[in-house]
């Protein structure tokens, strides 16, 4: 086992200063009036996420869930080395399209976020932002052991270990890296979960919003965005 210095204590006191562009500032209007700008308030919507009810009729909700399951739009966002394992899915050999799986370039239109491999703290910030910008219901799949327990980066100062502490993960696909077949199998599992009505990650995120935020802010020290990125 690796040697660990028992006396080492991480610095928990130092606060990271607010980013320059987000600091409140005074601006002169064309008429010469001086007004206050609070970038975070003025530029970003401050509403917290809402818990959305299912459809009143179960049959409708089931139908919707079936459609959601059969139309998985993956956000084209590769966080780590696992991104390379997704490309073959588009090829004739694996052809994920036949399962209703497609890739979208914008979070607004995607409903499946693949965390494809190790997630550094810096990338985590982007992943959170992107996840929040997706519209619910939305799903998160963690790819590879790095997202499960840190994997080979278990002792890295800058890589998270348990993804579900930061985002509501619906499914993990184990492996280092999992092969495309494993990914397909994982998607099938996710479909089942969605169809069963159990993939309510977005609502869970909204319900335990404070807990998630606390976890996120514990590792992201320069929190330079609103609490929820609409």
């Amino acid at each position: 086992m690796k040697h660990m210095d028992p006396n080492f204590r991480k610095d928990t006191k130092t606060e990271f200063p607010q980013r320059e562009e987000l600091k409140p500032r005074k601006v002169t209007t064309p008429d010469g009036q001086v007004i206050d700008i609070e970038p975070l308030q003025d530029y970003f919507c401050q509403e917290p996420p809402k818990v959305h009810q299912k459809s009143y009729f179960k049959i409708v909700e089931d139908f919707y869930n079936w459609c959601r399951a059969e139309s998985l739009w993956i956000l084209a966002f590769g966080t780590g080395c696992g991104a390379i394992e997704m490309r073959p899915l588009m090829t004739p050999r694996f052809d994920a399209y036949r399962y209703g799986i497609q890739w979208r370039a914008t979070p607004r239109q995607a409903n499946l976020l693949m965390i494809s491999g190790y997630l550094s703290v810096k990338t985590l910030k982007r992943a959170i932002r992107t996840y929040e910008q997706m519209q619910g219901p939305k799903y998160v799949v963690g790819l590879g052991s790095c997202t499960i327990n840190g994997g080979m980066y278990w002792d890295s100062y800058n890589t998270i270990k348990k993804l579900e502490e930061y985002l509501p993960v619906d499914l993990y696909i184990a492996g280092c890296m999992p092969r495309p077949e494993a990914l397909l199998a994982g998607f099938m599992e996710l479909k089942k979960k969605i169809k069963a009505g159990n993939a309510e990650g977005a609502n869970k995120y909204a319900e335990k919003f404070d807990w998630y935020k606390a976890n996120q802010k514990a590792v992201i020290k320069d929190w330079d965005m609103p609490d929820y990125n609409w």
């Binding site: 028992p6 991480k10 327990n149 890589t159 590792v219």
Partner: peptide
């Protein structure tokens, strides 16, 4: 040590 103190196993 940093990792242990920051990211839970």
């Amino acid at each position: 040590a940093y990792s242990q103190q920051t990211h839970a196993d």
